[in-house]
Amino acid sequence: MNYIERYVYAVKKHLPAHQKEDVGAEIKALILEQVSEEDDFQKIEKVLKDLGSPRKLAHSYRNQNRSLIGPDHFELYLDVLKIALKIVISINIFFGIVSFVGSLFVSEASLGLSIGTLFEDIIGNTISSALTTFGLVTLGFVVAIHFKWLDQNDEWMLKDLPELPKKPSKAGFSLRKTALETLGVGLGMAVLLIVLRLPWLAFDVGGSESDLTILTPANYAFYFPIFLGLLGFYLINQLIVIQQQGLSRLTLTLKILHSLSVVIVMFFMFFMEPAFLRVEDLTHLAELMGLNVSRLEEQINLILGVFLVLIAIGLGFDRYKDTKRLKKESSSHS
């Protein structure tokens, strides 16, 4: 019984204190225009049902400015959040890898465990830092919006208008991208040469043929298909880029140079005499670092493995970014 009073009470429960009495009285008056407590149940039920659930009705009084970050600031919020997340994630990955590489030479843990710890650390730290960043950025915006620090007047200058997105050139040539690509290929090849041939470790101990794991023919046979696969992936990637963007003479020259550099380095690595690093050299190095030889071998192989995985990830990411960029450019010019 007393359905009307109970309905009004239920609505008031969901209203802020300053609205309770006034809105409650008004809703009660509205209901009593149509029905009274003396009416039969069906009639009362129909009127109350027509008004909707008490919670929904109360919320319709409260639905103004209910969002934490309103549409006026949402774009800026998203931009800041993206930048902050990118920085935090990059820092986590960078320090994760640095700490991992460092631990290879001091930790006695197995390789599998080291890799496991690496990913566990990176993923765990990244997730917790990302969540903290999300919370802090959101909180910062809520405070800034509350104190109206972000409110701008509507005055604007012509010079503040955003630049139009650059049209993709006929040949799709991007100086920045090509320079980065050249730098990436050059650095990658240099690191590979250094890691595989380790010329800086040659302590001039003299001549016997190496029997180190990383330099044995059997190990080369293991790595060769992987390198070949990566090279194939790289070349296919370049062909897709050319097919999507067209080709200028400069791009063509650079792509040929890149591909050639990869081929030359591979040839150098796999077909020239591997004579830089010998057991004596490695023993010497191990002594210097206070490690045993097998441990050092193990870690060098691991670094190589991680490096190959990073190249593969880099190539895949490059492909993804290119496709995304082209889609964006073509949609912004269509």
Partner: peptide
């Protein structure tokens, strides 16, 4: 409020009370 709902309804403008009151 109730009369406003009714007057609008007579004009063919159907508005729920739960929309009009807020």
């Amino acid at each position: 409020g109730y009369v406003i709902v009714e007057r609008l309804a007579k004009l063919g403008i159907s508005v729920e009370a739960s929309t009009l009151y807020p």
